[in-house]
Design a protein around this nucleic acid. Structure first.
Length: 638
RNA sequence: GGUCCGAUAGCUCAACUGGAUAGAGCAACUGCCUUCUAAGCAGUAGGUUCCAGGUUCGAGUCCUGGUCGGAUCACCA
């Protein structure tokens, strides 16, 4: 319908002023609610080209449209804004079209392939709140891209090897006493505990080494607590405005402290053992590999449970243990072609100073792979596996630099897919107390959080007495739907790029701008539809097509429902589930208004009654579609 | 210090890519359940869009310079 009017405006300008105007340059916007009308055309943009003032142009185009375009019933002009009043019968027709559109909520296939990598867990760390944002985002973006016409492949890249993994393995060997996962401790938690245990023991060793070796440094011999001194000295230089110059003694001290700390950190027996274990693992030592497999198995079982609860899944999983050696060939290739260069110690680099990205290491001097080496290899592997034109990496914004470099490198190497690399960089999730710090125990565990949400949902639902007649099974399904709906909506309604605040109180709120509010409207409509069916009411499009009068709230709702597919495209282009989440809320809110304004079953006019039921049904469809795209289920009753 | 990102109502977030008097929710206050689900609806109050310049018919949005906050700049991942 908008297209119809845009064409009309183009025609009007042509016939009135003899000027050809590209349709793409004509943009309509919704009319602000304090003015009459539904769509607005801004005429300021044409003043120069046409040599008339904005009001004159608006007047002329308005008249032309009223005469020649049936949909336009009337118009008014405020300054340079031409507000078009669309006749109600047009909105009635629009709804009928939406109802009959089999592709509502699904854009035509575009034949393009896109891969979305998300989750990418570290097997030492149980999933926490930050991972929830990642998983929900990645999963939702995959669903949205699919709805927008892409062929989507969802993948996970598991970080299952490296020195940090050996740390938890070592701790398990030393302090594990053969513990295995149980009903109270799932596998990923168990392994995570040993990672923490390692860190604790390691810190102790460092402290011991520091006190043993302190006497080697004359400047520190009289110092009681070197770490405290380090902090004190650094604090002097920290403040920009009140920088306090260091004394000569302090300069020596800080230098010695740094040397001492580095010595202690690198020579703690536990770390040396972990490094030895990594060497064994890389050499394929049977015992080490067996332990690694056993512990990883536990982790995967634990993760699988969490993923299932979150409702996310993958088409393919990559393991770093299988990809970390890839990329070395690419380094050679880059050396041969002159994209990379070697430094004296045989380390390999790329010079990206021209792109303001500085020099970056792509292979260590001893020939071992770094993160970048691995990612280059994985990029090639992904392309070989799936042949996509776009490759999305859902990774936090602390890795912005890394992905800029990765993309630049692949471009320099002439990879055809390089331009399609997109880092979906999302902001951190902060708590009211500030950032989550594992050391300070402020990390919000994903499993715990979800369970708390479910408990809250149960409590609130029981309070409201809305589940009379539910079986226990139905009730528990509902609690889960509400809990995850609340959580996902809360995390996804915010623009992914932005750092967001997670307020535990607000997240479990069920009022206002929340997932539950949207779900509630869906359930309310389903109840209506059940009654309509029971009463045998026919509300197919033919029953209301001749209706000519609607309320403003109703026509606004139809207009909103008509935007479904545009929103999907918009949100896919921006990789932003927040657009869909906000759309779902807008529809629910507008529906809620319509619902409260006009009764349905007491309506005497049969056409109106049928229209309202059809409008309700279509709203439920829109809500259901939009929520599904952010991974949220719509309950039939609640 | 270099680079990148952010700053909008007391709080959490929007603002269709430069359009009208910047909108929602929460919190506060006022109405509305004898009528299809009140997890709801309607209303009141709340703003120097961090600051200073600039670009133009028009700037929260674009440009320049600042302030404040965050990230990153490892032969870690």
């Amino acid at each position: 319908m908008e297209q119809l009017i845009i064409n009309g405006i183009a025609e009007a300008v042509k016939s009135l002023y003899g000027v050809e105007l590209e349709a793409s340059r004509i943009a309509l916007q919704p009319t602000k609610k304090e003015f009459e009308g539904s769509l607005t055309f801004v005429t300021f943009g044409l003043t120069k080209q046409l040599g008339k003032n904005p009001v004159e142009i608006g007047e002329a185009i308005g008249n032309y449209l009223k005469e020649n375009v049936d949909a336009v019933a009337d118009f008014n002009i405020v300054k340079g804004f031409l507000n078009l009043v669309i006749s109600d019968s047009v909105w009635v027709t629009t709804l009928a079209q939406l109802v009959e559109d089999e592709n509502y909520g699904r854009v035509a296939r575009n034949g393009e392939k896109v891969m979305v990598e998300y989750s990418s867990p570290n097997t030492n760390k149980p999933l926490h709140l930050g991972h929830l944002r990642n998983n929900f985002l990645g999963h939702s973006v995959s669903l949205i891209l699919d709805a927008a016409g892409y062929d989507v492949q969802k993948v996970n890249l598991v970080n299952d090897r490296g020195i940090h993994i050996c740390k938890s393995m070592l701790a398990y060997v030393k302090f594990g006493n053969g513990e295995t996962p149980s009903a109270t401790v799932k596998g990923d938690k168990l392994v995570g505990n040993y990672y923490v245990a390692f860190d604790k023991a390691y810190k102790k060793e460092i402290a011991q080494l520091i006190s043993d070796k302190q006497s080697d440094y004359p400047s520190l011999s009289a110092v009681e607590d070197v770490k405290a001194l380090k902090k004190a000295i650094e604090a002097k230089g920290a403040s920009k405005k009140n920088k306090i110059p260091l004394t000569e003694e302090e300069k020596v001290q800080i230098k010695d402290i740094k040397a001492l700390l580095e010595y202690a950190e690198k020579n703690a027996p536990l770390l040396l053992e972990a490094q030895e274990m990594l060497r064994k693992w890389e050499a394929g030592d049977k015992e080490t590999v067996a332990l690694w497999e056993k512990m990883n198995g536990w982790v995967y079982e634990g993760f699988a449970q969490s993923y299932k609860m979150m409702g996310v899944e993958f088409d393919n999983v990559y393991y770093e243990s299988q990809t970390y050696l890839l990329g070395k060939d690419i380094v050679q290739e880059g050396l041969d072609s002159g994209v990379f260069f070697k430094k004296e110690n045989d380390s390999v680099w790329i010079d990206l100073k021209k792109e303001k990205l500085d020099e970056k290491l792509v292979l260590r001097g001893d020939g071992t792979a770094v993160y970048m080496t691995q990612d280059m290899g994985t990029a090639d592997l992904k392309y070989k596996d799936f042949g996509m034109t776009k490759s999305v990496y859902v990774v936090g914004n602390e890795q912005d630099y890394h992905f800029k470099v990765l993309k630049a490198i692949m471009k320099h190497l002439g990879r055809s897919y390089a331009d399609g690399i997109y880092h979906l960089s999302y902001g951190m999730v902060e708590l009211p107390e500030g950032k989550m710090k594992s050391r300070e125990g402020t990390v919000v565990d994903a499993d715990d959080l979800i369970q708390e949400m479910i408990d809250t949902a149960e409590e609130r639902t029981k309070e409201s007495g809305k589940i009379d007649g539910f079986s226990d099974k139905e009730a528990s399904v509902l609690f889960k739907q509400l809990a995850l709906g609340a959580l996902k909506y809360y995390l996804l309604k915010v623009d992914p790029k932005k750092t967001m605040l997670f307020n535990p109180q607000e997240s479990i709120d069920f009022q206002g701008d929340t997932g539950v509010y949207i779900q509630y409207n869906h359930a309310k409509i389903q109840a209506l539809l059940r009654r309509a069916d029971k009463d045998g009411i026919n509300y197919t499009t033919s029953t209301f097509k001749d209706l000519t009068e609607l309320s403003n709230a109703e026509s606004d709702l139809v207009a909103l429902l008509g935007k479904m597919n545009d929103k999907i495209t918009e949100s896919a282009d921006a990789y932003a589930p927040s657009i869909i989440a906000n759309y779902a809320f807008d529809v629910a809110k507008q529906y809620s208004k319509v619902y409260s304004e006009s009764p349905i079953f007491n309506e005497e006019d049969e056409a109106k009654k049928a229209f309202r039921i059809a409008l309700s049904a279509q709203s439920a469809k829109a809500i259901n579609n939009a929520l599904a795209l952010i991974g949220v289920q719509s309950p039939e009753r609640m």
